[in-house]
Design a binder for these strands. Structure first.
Lengths: 338, 338
DNA sequence: GCTGGCACTCGCACACGGTGAGTGCCAAGC
DNA sequence: GCTTGGCACTCACCGTGTGCGAGTGCCAGC
């Protein structure tokens, strides 16, 4: 059971530590915050907080720093989400509005988020799992060579080369293209396989091989693209981490290069609402001294992908959460418009 | 005029310094290399090399380290390009052969290069300047909404949304698509503008606005995509830089995030053959203690893009150059096949 | 339960001196 | 004339020692 004041002390410790990066002592605390009690009292509270595991001392006779558990409590109960200032909001909008295509939206979002939070930004490309097919295009590049182009409702375009088992005429091609589109346009990825299942049968025997190949490629593309890609930025901000660099920064950079790790990281974030994972709450070892703030974004109600930032556990949670949320909203708007 | 032996001394200094990361003294040099002379003689040579500006002392009474000028001489006259081992070559080939599309080729190349050189790898997407148009596709998404898809001979696909000034019928669309393709397919980007110049005139007055818009978008895409994109990887290797980290690594990370800077960097590399830019030879300030080894690669004779690595001036030049060259060749092969 | 006082701890910064690698110079030798 | 061994000198580096100060825990009193 933590009294109101002790929570207040914890909040003060977190705030000061985030600001100064130095262990904070009882005296300094009473000076910087109006707690209405003396340092001695704060010391008692600190001892209690330490017993509960919310704060710790790097070494005897140093100030206290919050533990992961302390940050967790802070985020859950003590901190709000700090809204952005009006100029900031306007800047976001202006910056994102200038995007020309999906790649550009993602690239700009990453830059923006990195700048706003001064941390490493991670943005997942809009997901295809819940996406629908906007159009499928088939082009003949050579007699036995096709190109398949898949366009999704999120504006994403994927292409694949296809080597046909046999030459495929222009009329067959147009036929396949038309039938394919009439069946899958507007449909969800997940539904596509059964929708096209019987398609080869309706073609001439000599074309069936090619049709099957095309369908196989299409399905493969759908599956592959469900594994999302992402873009990261602001890695230079890692240099603000601490002084004991190489050890801290290295595993983080390594983790950031592993798309798999990052995707898992974002994937762990809850579907809706903001997720904050602090320090050891992150499964990945290299990220045990970082926190991840992530949130889903999407053009409609449903989140189609996630974005967030990775930074030291000692981060400005309210500000970061505010920035992440705001950016996610604007990106959603942009996507909805295009 | 540098005697043969003095060059040999310089080579030894560079090799030792790259290996140990520590200033190298006259005694250690004679012990590790068979120079056939005494330390005292080497000292004289070192004094001469220092007068000429090829080496320097960090502080009085320390060993010597090569200067940028010293590395330059080393690269130009003393170092060969170290070929990769057979297993390495095989690994490259296997790894790259598994690529599924252009993005994948680039992504794999980056990883590979970063691993081989243990440095930061930069790969430019195949350029479109010299590229030709493989196909232009027009899709109707809504009555007054089109999507333009441009496919290049390097396998790249670009798409753009187009809002038409007036509704555009299916027949007009097919007509435009056919005429557009018959004119530009197989042509170089640079030639496209004049090839389509008179196209609007041949359409019905009510369609001309849309045709003009489509053409404008197409030309815009061609121009925009001439500004290349690139992918980087292996930034974690930056942590092996030195001990005086933050100061060294920060500007490098910042530079790496600026695509513009990197593109310029690669752009400065000579058209054919390998380019090595050492330390201050790089225009960008943040990269004054790094070297860039870059080379063009392409599917045919002409280089369509460049790739390379960024690392400390104190790098293993022969090995790095060998790896960069080998990777460029294999990527070229892969591109030629697909 | 809060507060002031007090003794104690211990990391940090700084000064100090010894050590050793490395240098430049010089006089002698091939 | 180049090479070599000798020699005095220079400093960066490292380990030790010390003073300082921030911070703590505990306790007695209000």
């Amino acid at each position: 059971m933590l009294s109101e004041r002790r929570l207040e002390v914890l909040r003060a410790i977190v705030q000061d530590y985030v600001g100064t990066e130095e262990p904070v002592g009882s005296k300094a605390l009473t000076e910087r915050h109006q707690l209405g009690v003396s340092p001695a009292t704060v010391r008692n509270d600190m001892a209690a907080l330490e017993d509960e595991g919310f704060i710790a001392q790097p070494h005897t006779s140093a100030g206290r720093i919050p533990t992961d558990k302390g940050y967790r409590l802070f985020v859950d109960r003590l901190a709000g989400v700090k809204p952005l200032s009006t100029p900031e909001r306007r800047a976001i909008q202006n910056f994102l509005d200038a995007s020309v295509d999906l790649d550009d939206v993602v690239a700009r979002t990453v830059r923006l988020l990195a700048q706003l939070t001064r941390q490493v930004a991670v943005v997942q490309y809009p997901s295809l799992t819940r996406s629908t097919v906007r159009h499928v295009e088939l082009l003949s590049l050579a007699p036995a060579r096709l190109m398949l182009v898949l366009i999704t409702d999120t504006g994403r375009v994927e292409q694949r080369m296809i080597d046909c088992p046999a030459p495929f005429g222009e009329t067959s091609l147009a036929d396949l293209r038309a039938r394919l589109n009439s069946r899958v346009v507007g449909r969800r990825f997940a539904d596509v396989p059964q929708l096209v299942q019987d398609l080869p049968e309706s073609f001439e025997p000599e074309d069936r091989g090619t049709v099957s190949t095309v369908l196989a490629t299409l399905l493969e593309t759908l599956v592959e693209e469900t594994e999302e890609r992402l873009m990261i930025g602001g890695t230079a901000n890692l240099t603000r981490f601490g002084h004991d660099f190489p050890l801290t920064i290295r595993p983080v950079l390594e983790a950031l290069e592993e798309q798999v790790v990052l995707l898992k990281l974002l994937g762990e974030a809850t579907e809706s609402g903001m997720t904050v994972r602090i320090g050891h709450e992150n499964a990945h070892e290299g990220l045990s001294s970082t926190s991840v703030v992530a949130v889903g974004y999407g053009s409609g109600d449903e989140a189609v992908a996630k974005l967030g930032v990775v930074g030291p556990t000692r981060m400005d949670y309210p500000g970061t959460m505010g920035a992440v949320r705001a950016v996610a909203r604007y990106v959603g708007q942009i996507l909805a418009e295009s």
